[in-house]
């Protein structure tokens, strides 16, 4: 199996896993048990590189400065299957993905289904946010600085977000059917809180590449430790 096809399979697993959340139920949880957490670290052994601008020879001058890669090091860790009662959500959550310095900020956004994401434009130029992902297709058209447009995400899955005008601008939105996920910090550390005690399968994701699902046990009121390495 080539590296490319392996990566493809991993992407497929990611999407399947996310969608499967809504139907897969884990072992029952004892009544009166205290919730715990899953924590650990995701080590990236992959070389993170920014999406460079296309070398458009037709430019009359130098385009804007090079891009920052730091937010491409952020990973998402999530439960492959969610506990019972995980799908109860009262309010419609909102999140923001800004367009600033010809980048989407944040580059990776993890949300639950039903979330409305606002896409403000903080640059002094037009942007045109769109996605052709099967999970959620949308095109917000061109709008200027100071304006924002919302998109509601009702299906679980991975949504790739682009700007039609600036091909180097891209982002990921991971839509979950449950709240048991966490973004890593700058050191790769994560913590998924408020997890009912039980045994779970956990997946780590970075830039479209997912780990295999790995088991972890969350003790009553304790923390299940689990580290990942993504190559």
């Amino acid at each position: 199996m080539t590296a490319f096809s392996r990566r493809t399979r991993r992407r497929a697993l990611t999407t399947t896993g996310l969608v499967a959340l809504a139907i897969a139920l884990p072992k029952p949880v004892a009544q009166g048990a205290r919730n715990g957490a899953i924590a650990g670290r995701v080590e990236l052994r992959r070389v993170a590189s920014p999406v460079e601008r296309r070398p458009t020879v037709a430019d009359l001058g130098t385009p804007a400065a090079a891009l920052d890669i730091s937010d491409r090091l952020k990973s998402v860790v999530y439960l492959d299957s969610a506990p019972r009662g995980a799908f109860e959500q009262v309010e419609t959550p909102r999140a923001v993905m800004d367009q600033h310095g010809e980048r989407f900020v944040p580059h990776v956004l993890a949300i639950t289904t039903g979330t409305i994401v606002d896409f403000p434009n903080s640059d002094h130029i037009y942007h045109n946010v769109f996605s052709l992902s099967k999970t959620r297709q949308f095109d917000l058209g061109r709008y200027a600085s100071g304006h924002s447009k919302p998109v509601r995400f009702d299906r679980a899955g991975v949504v790739r977000v682009f700007c039609e005008i600036h091909s180097h601008m891209n982002a990921f939105i991971l839509v979950f059917s449950h709240p048991f996920y966490s973004l890593t910090d700058n050191d790769g550390r994560y913590r998924i809180d408020n997890v009912p005690p039980g045994s779970y399968n956990v997946i780590a994701w970075n830039e479209g590449v997912s780990s295999e699902a790995r088991p972890v046990i969350v003790p009553d009121g304790g923390v299940g430790e689990l580290d990942f390495t993504l190559r």
């Binding site: 096809s5 493809t8 460079e52 296309r54 070398p55």
Partner: peptide
Amino acid sequence: AQALPSEP
């Protein structure tokens, strides 16, 4: 799917 590049 990944045989052709999608980014420079």
